[in-house]
Design a protein around this nucleic acid. Structure first.
Lengths: 122, 122
DNA sequence: CAGAATCCGATTGGATACTG
DNA sequence: CAGTATCCAATCGGATTCTG
């Protein structure tokens, strides 16, 4: 079986509002990363994405399903099991996402400095 | 002097909420495009960006100025003249923006189809 | 011309509690 | 386990009006 997701996967991640390029809603990019190497259960996703609430996580996953980025597979067992998996279309988003990450790595600090300077200039 | 901006520059542009990758807020990406070839006045920007209101356009420009993406230069004349110009940091955003546009061109139709199919499956 | 001020509706994300 | 159902605060974008 595959490795469980690292609970601290996004620990040192900037707040999404601090970055100029966003993919989907607040949680979409992180969900993409979590599903990169294969399907994951709902409860697996909740671990690295904490403190996301079930309602909000469901909303993001539904939107991604609607857009054809993920598939949702429910297994008829007790307790219930549901798996989310990236489609090829979902995988294709890693291309622009990588470009965004490259920008953050290359220019993120410069933007942060510009913000501080702007704040200090009041 | 340079060409005026085409009033229909964004006429056949998808609504920003239809696309998965966004740069800044609702108007940021379009402002980047308007400033690509050199400085522009506030009123010049309003033309292709119509029906943006002055308040919202100002908010976007202020945020971009704060982030070091544009400079704002006010000339002390009557009537007043203000010019906005991209910084090198602002120009650097065309890299991830291009990746986003490539994705839209390559996979946008597929996402649109997925949405229709999802809607019809109710 | 280039905005500032005010007010407002819609959307977003979250807290909390409950269920098949 | 994998959600759903309510309720709610904050943010976003826009309409309108006014000004140096």
């Amino acid at each position: 079986m595959r490795e469980p997701l690292d609970p601290a996967l996004f620990a040192d991640c900037d707040d999404h509002t601090d970055l100029p390029v966003r993919v989907g809603d607040k949680w979409t990019a992180k969900i993409l990363v979590c599903l990169r190497d294969g399907p994951r259960r709902f409860s697996e996703l909740q671990v690295p994405l904490a403190p996301v609430t079930p309602k909000v996580l469901t909303e993001s996953l539904r939107a991604m399903e609607r857009d054809g980025l993920v598939t949702r597979t429910a297994y008829d067992e007790t307790p219930p099991r549901v798996e989310y998996e990236l489609t090829p279309l979902g995988h294709s988003l890693f291309q622009p996402l990588a470009a965004s990450c490259t920008w953050n790595a290359t220019h993120g600090a410069e933007m942060a400095r510009a913000r501080e300077e702007y704040a200090n200039r009041r």
